[in-house]
């Protein structure tokens, strides 16, 4: 065994080099102060436990894939935009979502979600549009396989539902 640099052959010097750079990089990773994003597990956990989604989520295809796996029902994009006044009607495997104008209050609409399986349940409706943080809407427990809420037509969830590109998830 030698402890002189000149006695190290190429392999030995390369080993030293590799160890040094690995130490340096490992330290760099550990010490980095880059701003963190909402973690995948924080998003998933929020979906699973009913807690609020962490702020700062940037929608992308990966988020959609994650939401689709976490959700009990995923509504795809719809072919054309609609307005609450027209009555929104979106179908997915397992559920149907409609927005029905209230006859009793013209400025309000019913958001009605009916499940194919009467025992199915969902606690939240999440709407993901492009370029904005996901919109989360708490749902009451379904009754006989149907969730119904009454909202003002100005409610952001109706605006999101009217967006043909919005993806909807029942979680």
């Amino acid at each position: 065994m030698t402890d002189r640099w000149r006695d190290l052959e190429d392999d030995g010097r390369r080993t030293a080099e590799t160890i040094f750079s690995a130490l340096d990089v490992a330290r760099g990773l550990t010490d980095c102060r880059a701003p963190s994003r909402p973690s995948v597990s924080a998003i998933w956990s929020a979906l699973a436990t009913g807690r609020a989604l962490p702020g700062g989520i940037v929608p992308d295809a990966d988020l959609d894939a994650l939401l689709a796996d976490a959700a009990s029902v995923a509504f795809p994009r719809q072919a054309a935009a609609a307005t609450p006044q027209d009555g929104i009607d979106r179908h997915a495997d397992g559920a149907r979502l409609r927005v029905v104008p209230s006859l009793g209050a013209p400025g309000q609409s019913y958001l009605a979600i009916s499940f194919d399986d009467p025992t199915a349940t969902a606690s939240r409706l999440i709407a993901v549009g492009d370029g904005a943080e996901p919109l989360v809407f708490a749902l009451p427990p379904p009754v006989d396989g149907m969730v119904q809420i009454l909202v003002d037509n100005s409610d952001p969830i109706l605006v999101a539902l009217a967006d043909a590109d919005a993806r909807l998830y029942l979680v």
Binding site: M1, L8, D11, G12, R13, T15, A16, I19, F20
Partner: peptide
Amino acid sequence: MLRTALQAAFERHAIDTARSVGPDREAG
């Protein structure tokens, strides 16, 4: 870090097991 790296290299050198690896890595 350099002390650590040299120490490790000297140990490896002593037992002469530093070796080339992997198909996609540079030899050595």
